[in-house]
């Protein structure tokens, strides 16, 4: 199963949309850096799948409160996700 990592705001580039188009069943999605702007209120640009992960520090830093369906994680859990998944694809 693939781990997809998105670090771009959904309002600025197509990274998130391209990523969602390329997700297979069972894949995981992690939002980091400006990608966390997709984790707040529903954007209307692209619905975020349930079970999506969000790097907590990046959300907190930006004053973003992620939706309830999103799992907040730290760097350790991020690494664990990398161990659990292959390949790892970054969208930027």
């Amino acid at each position: 199963m693939t781990l997809h990592i998105v670090n771009q705001s959904p309002y600025r580039t197509s990274a998130l949309r391209d990523c969602l188009d390329a997700m297979a069943d069972g894949d995981a999605l992690l939002l980091i850096e400006d990608g966390v702007y997709a984790a707040g209120a529903p954007t209307g640009i692209a619905p975020i799948p349930a079970g999506t992960y969000c790097l907590q520090a990046d959300a907190v830093a930006r004053g973003i409160t992620p939706a309830k369906s999103i799992t907040l994680i730290d760097d350790e859990r991020w690494i664990a996700l990398c161990v659990e998944h292959t390949p790892i694809v970054s969208w930027f």
Binding site: I5, N7, Q8, E33, D34, C82, V83, T86, P87, I88, S90, W91, F92
Partner: peptide, 10 residues
């Protein structure tokens, strides 16, 4: 490597 992680530009 078992895993490659890319840190992309912005």
């Amino acid at each position: 490597s078992d895993r490659i992680v890319t840190f992309g530009g912005s």
